[in-house]
C-alpha cells in the first residue's frame, strides 16, 4: 500500500514542481506550491505506514497492552499535522502577495515584475 502512495506522492511532487517552474501566472505558481506540499505530506505519511495495521488510537479496537504490534508509526502523522498548517500559512501569505502585486501592475505574469535585476 505504501509503495503505491509513495509513487503517487513522487509523481505529484514532479507535477507540483512543473507547475511552479513553468507556469507564468502567479496564482498557478501558488497552486503548484499547494500540490507540491500535499505531495510531500502524502510521502511523509506513506513512510510511516506499516501494512496491515490501524490508526494509533488506543481505544477499544487497540487494547493498550498489544498496541506495539497493532498501530502504525504515529510520529510522521504528528509532523504532517504541523506541515499542513505551515503550508496553509505560507499559501495564505503568498496569496496576499499576489493580491498586492496585482494591485501594482494589474497583471499576474511573473515575468512582468523584473524591475529588480542585475
Amino acid at each position: 500500500m505504501e509503495y503505491i502512495s509513495l509513487i503517487t506522492g513522487f509523481i505529484m511532487l514532479m507535477i507540483g514542481l512543473w507547475g511552479i517552474l513553468s507556469q507564468k501566472n502567479i496564482i498557478k505558481i501558488i497552486i503548484g506550491f499547494t500540490i507540491f506540499d500535499t505531495a510531500i505530506n502524502i510521502i511523509i505519511i506513506s513512510i510511516g505506514y506499516i501494512s496491515g495495521r490501524t490508526a494509533p488510537i488506543l481505544d477499544k479496537a487497540v487494547p493498550v497492552k498489544d498496541a506495539v504490534t497493532k498501530i502504525v508509526d504515529p510520529i510522521p502523522q504528528a509532523l504532517v499535522l504541523t506541515s499542513i498548517v505551515i503550508s496553509l500559512g505560507v499559501t495564505a501569505l503568498m496569496l496576499a502577495y499576489a493580491l498586492k502585486l496585482h494591485k501594482y501592475k494589474n497583471t499576474l505574469e511573473i515575468n512582468k515584475f523584473k524591475d529588480l535585476k542585475w
Binding site: I20, I26, I29, V90, L93, M94, Y97, A98, K100, L101, Y104, K105, F113, D115, L116
Partner: peptide
C-alpha cells in the same frame, strides 16, 4: 512598495 512586494514574493518562492 512595488520593489519590496516583488522582492518578498521572490523570497517566498
Amino acid at each position: 512598495g512595488l520593489k519590496s512586494t516583488s522582492a518578498g514574493f521572490k523570497y517566498m518562492i
